[in-house]
Design a protein around this nucleic acid. Structure first.
Lengths: 104, 104
DNA sequence: ATTTTACTTAACCATTCGGTTTTGTATTTT
DNA sequence: AAAATACAAAACCGAATGGTTAAGTAAAAT
């Protein structure tokens, strides 16, 4: 098993982002998740494993079923990273606008 | 050229995230950027092109130099996506805590 | 005019990725 | 006990990724 997956890499794939969307509001079995995508069950299984490896999903074994539940706290790292630069960027734009306004 | 790069995929690579960090506060030439990474200049060039292709960086040709300036507005898509689920998740946790509190 | 600089392009390479099909294995259902 | 279900594991595949070196090109410095 790969030590510790990177959440940024995990969400790079659109299929995995869709899976997060699906699981955000409800816990689903692997099979049910698979029904929502037009790919084989092993493919879905692999994606889910990647999401689990970076803590975005917890897979709970119940009998022969795997119940997948979102653990979206791991998205905080992404949210903070992106927000940090977005704010920084907006401030720069504001400063620029003020400079232009002062020139009048 | 690849039609329209995905910003999620662009920031999946740690090197590219570091480049964004570098360029956030200052415009730098490709060469200067390259000095900050222990990889060949063509490698840096490739990374920068990917960042440019998804709008995170603008490359301005000045003579023989390429001036790279961040355009971090493109991060808004990421920030909103992550923030949306992070908030959703926090609300769920709050609701859970309230339920537990009500049980006392 | 020549050389140096700052790059791009091209060719190549190993590894990873995202998918497949096939096979195996518990767990339920019948 | 037998069959069906819900998955995992393995083997495989083509394409993309992230890197390299080598060669080419345009601009600047000498």
């Amino acid at each position: 098993m790969k030590a510790r997956r990177d959440v940024f890499q995990a969400i790079a794939d659109p299929t995995r982002r869709a899976m997060i969307g699906l699981l955000a509001s409800q816990t689903l079995t692997l099979n049910t998740v698979a029904e929502n995508f037009q790919m084989s069950q092993p493919a879905v299984s692999k994606h889910m494993r990647i999401l689990a490896e970076c803590g975005l999903v917890e897979i709970v074994k119940l009998g022969r079923e795997r119940h997948c539940q979102a653990r979206l706290g791991a998205l905080e790292e992404v949210a903070r990273w992106a927000e940090q630069y977005r704010l920084f960027w907006n401030n720069r734009l504001d400063t620029l606008q003020n400079l232009l306004k002062d020139e009048d």
